[in-house]
């Protein structure tokens, strides 16, 4: 009996030794889904903001006779031919970005419709459509910007967005404060993606020095494979985002 008891004890000890922890539990982050969604939408907004800045640059050149370029020095060169402007940005010593804007010979404050293109050189130089800026008559610092599923994107996702844009040049801080209102957009990976993120602004999104300072956004995520949805409202104040579930 003693023998079997000792055998049982050995087996029990072995089992206890065996029941060890291979990996510890996750510390579950809260609001992780909301942060994922907002980061994606914010990245898309920053991409759109970059395109809008190019429109702003040309608008300032046309209205204020290169004053904007002289003040901020972001552009390296501007040339025009039959109403089509080419803007070259020296991003670094070995990398430059070239954009082309077809103005039709009209300024934005004359109600013009400008088409923005990027010169893309990965597969040889070709012109890729990015979006359209539509001016408001009599308004020098306002336009409507529409981007539609750009085939060219330096990012791993694409955005189609409509918004009204207003900007103020701040020479003191050498920056451009840009406000997007009435934003309506869709962000996804590609045309064959298994999800979409639809977003609408509830309050204007304010950019300063290319950073989102404030705003409020309604975001709806749709998983097309799992047939699930998730909605959230993001409010940004002083660059800090807070999340609320939108039921």
């Amino acid at each position: 009996m003693r023998r079997y008891f000792s055998i049982l004890m050995v087996a029990l000890a072995t089992t206890l030794l065996s029941a060890c922890e291979l990996e510890s539990a996750d510390i579950g982050p809260t609001s992780y889904a909301e942060r994922l969604l907002w980061n994606r939408v914010a990245d898309g907004l920053k991409v759109e903001h970059g395109y809008m800045q190019i429109v702003v640059d040309l608008n300032e050149i046309m209205i204020n006779n290169n004053a904007y370029m002289a003040t901020f020095g972001r552009l390296s060169s501007v040339s025009s031919e039959e109403g089509e402007y080419t803007l070259v940005y020296n991003i670094s010593s070995y990398h430059k970005e070239i954009y082309s804007i077809q103005t039709g010979g009209k300024r934005l404050d004359e109600g013009a419709e400008w088409s923005l293109y990027a010169w893309e050189d990965n597969i040889g130089f070709s012109k890729q459509y990015i979006g359209t800026a539509t001016g408001v008559e009599g308004q020098t610092n306002k336009f409507h910007f529409s981007s539609g599923n750009p085939t060219w994107s330096p990012y791993s996702f694409c955005v189609a967005q409509e918004s009204d844009v207003e900007y103020v040049l701040n020479e003191g801080t050498r920056s451009c404060d840009l406000t997007m209102t009435n934003i309506s957009g869709v962000s996804t990976d590609s045309a064959y993606s298994d999800y979409t993120i639809e977003y609408h602004s509830l309050q204007p999104i304010l950019f300063k020095r290319a950073q989102i300072i404030s705003g409020k956004m309604d975001i709806l995520y749709k998983d097309l494979v799992r047939k699930s949805e998730r909605a959230t409202i993001v409010e940004v104040k002083n660059q800090i985002a807070t999340y609320a579930e939108n039921k």
């Binding site: 065996s18 990996e23 539990a25 579950g28 994922l36 990976d189 999800y195 995520y221 799992r226 998730r230």
Partner: peptide, 22 residues
């Protein structure tokens, strides 16, 4: 993991992995 998978697993956590014997 792609974005859709990250979203599907967001707001979840995993318990500890325990070996229960051989």
């Amino acid at each position: 993991r792609n974005f859709a998978d990250q979203m599907a697993n967001a707001d979840t956590y995993r318990t500890a992995r325990r070996f229960i014997g051989n």
